[in-house]
């Protein structure tokens, strides 16, 4: 299947880039240029989007399949997506930061921040865009649920018969979540 081989290529490239560039890996981002309206992005576009998404969300193992679907969906709703991504990437690259938190404290431009929020919203909510053009991509894979995983289930996916009662402890341990007595 054509789709499958595309995924395989993308996966391959991701690991290669991770290997070459370590944590920060958008060497090719600046090369992204606006292209004609097309529904079949190049594998490298998806890969770049995936790497950018991993930086923006602070996650290391985002799904290539979902990256492709978010990319397509966002492209559909934002015709200038490629330009916006290129601008955002260039700005991150120029800032020299290593993490999203550093980038945020560095002070992104309003446009870059806007693009970042659009992409992060998609991954976190599993939904692209605003009403009435909202498009559903992921439910149980939406990243917002990872923040509370271990404590709360994704609604409709139960943890088993009467499987509750202990003090909830999310897997994701974050500094500063207030739990003071």
């Amino acid at each position: 299947m054509k789709q499958q081989s595309l995924f395989a290529t993308a996966v391959c490239q991701v690991s290669r880039r991770r290997l070459l560039l370590g944590g920060l890996a958008f060497g090719s981002m600046g090369l992204l240029a606006p292209r004609g309206l097309t529904n079949t992005p190049k594998a490298s576009d998806v890969t770049d989007f995936l790497i950018l998404s991993e930086f923006l969300t602070g996650r290391k193992t985002l799904s290539v399949t979902l990256a492709r679907r978010y990319y397509l969906g966002l492209q559909d709703q934002f015709p200038d997506l490629a330009v916006r991504i290129a601008n955002l990437s260039r700005e991150i690259h120029a800032s020299g930061v290593q993490t999203m938190d550093d980038y945020l404290s560095h002070g992104p431009s309003p446009e870059a921040r806007n693009t970042a929020t659009t992409i992060v919203s998609a991954w976190y909510l599993g939904v692209i865009g605003q009403n009435p053009k909202k498009q559903m991509i992921a439910y149980s894979d939406a990243l917002m649920f990872q923040a509370v995983a271990g404590a709360l289930v994704v609604p409709s996916y139960g943890a088993g018969p009467l499987a509750w009662g202990n003090r909830p402890e999310p897997y994701m341990m974050l500094k500063g979540v207030s739990d003071e007595q």
């Binding site: 602070g58 938190d101 945020l104 970042a116 992060v120 976190y124 923040a147 979540v177």
Partner: peptide, 12 residues
């Protein structure tokens, strides 16, 4: 517009 680690932290 909450992003970064702060987003996970605030959701929690």
């Amino acid at each position: 517009g909450v992003l970064g680690t702060e987003l996970d932290r605030k959701i929690q």
